[in-house]
Design a protein around this nucleic acid. Sequence first.
DNA 1: GCAAGAACTCAAGCTCACTTGAACTACAGG
DNA 2: CCTGTAGTTCAAGTGAGCTTGAGTTCTTGC
Lengths: 157, 157
Amino acid sequence: MAEENVPSKDHWLSIGEIAHRSGVAASALRFYEDQGLIRSRRTAGNQRQYQRSTLRRIAFVQAAQRVGLALAEIKGALDSLPDDRTPTRADWSRLSRSWRSRLDERIAELERLRDDLDGCIGCGCLSLQRCNLYNKADRLAERGPGARILNVGIPGE
Amino acid sequence: MAEENVPSKDHWLSIGEIAHRSGVAASALRFYEDQGLIRSRRTAGNQRQYQRSTLRRIAFVQAAQRVGLALAEIKGALDSLPDDRTPTRADWSRLSRSWRSRLDERIAELERLRDDLDGCIGCGCLSLQRCNLYNKADRLAERGPGARILNVGIPGE
DNA sequence: GCAAGAACTCAAGCTCACTTGAACTACAGG
DNA sequence: CCTGTAGTTCAAGTGAGCTTGAGTTCTTGC
């Protein structure tokens, strides 16, 4: 664990500083740490200290959340970062690319929805046979019992 | 179907039928009714009966949820539908158009995110001054407590 | 007329992503 | 040394969006 790895300005940040700079509440940061999304070391007096790079992790978490990922999934992604060294450009690149496809999917999904909606505006949702949105709902029913709620995704349709 | 142009011959549906056709659990339908998203009349024996058009309301709710709207907002939209008559094509059109812009915004937001991400992949998130995602986090203000916007993305998705 | 199954109510429970509160400790400035 | 601000832990609370369970009643088919 070469500490010299980090520039001589080995400047650790308190939870308050991180909270302020990231816009994430201290309570949320503690929660994230609990969940294994970020890490800290402690001072002699047991106060958290974060590396600067933690800000990047947090930015990643926030961005990923906006894509619609759950914290558990985000943790999964972050876990693939090296534990022993500060993540490199390549590390972040790989990660970013990995959810870039998620982003694309999500965008595509919303665009499909928009197209359906356009059709819906056209048909005025009056024609039960024609309206995509309407029929989408009806089709869900055909997906049998079992795990209900969750299948809003309708992937591949 | 000749049935469609006979509005007076109301064919009411039980909660089970609606649940089956919409793919939404009966418990959720009761919940929706509680929240004022749908309505029902009751039989002599106090069982719910729904109009066929309720299926459309439910389809609307589901679609709107996928856009990221909260139930309260969706209720707001649905409340603008006429209470006294079955919604017309124009009614639905207006509603659909109203959240079509929401959809566009949402898509645009994700696309911005994607662009930032592309830049991020390029810069490898190494340049703290340059990385958009990073700086975005720095400026992110407060959002209210509770669940975050996007977890409307549904568990299991 | 009766059993099975569908529906009813109401309260409580669950997941997610946090926040809040209580009670206490650490650290920095005058 | 004192005070105030920032930080600590742990437990419980919050809000959205439902589900589950218990106990009861309606409806349907034989």
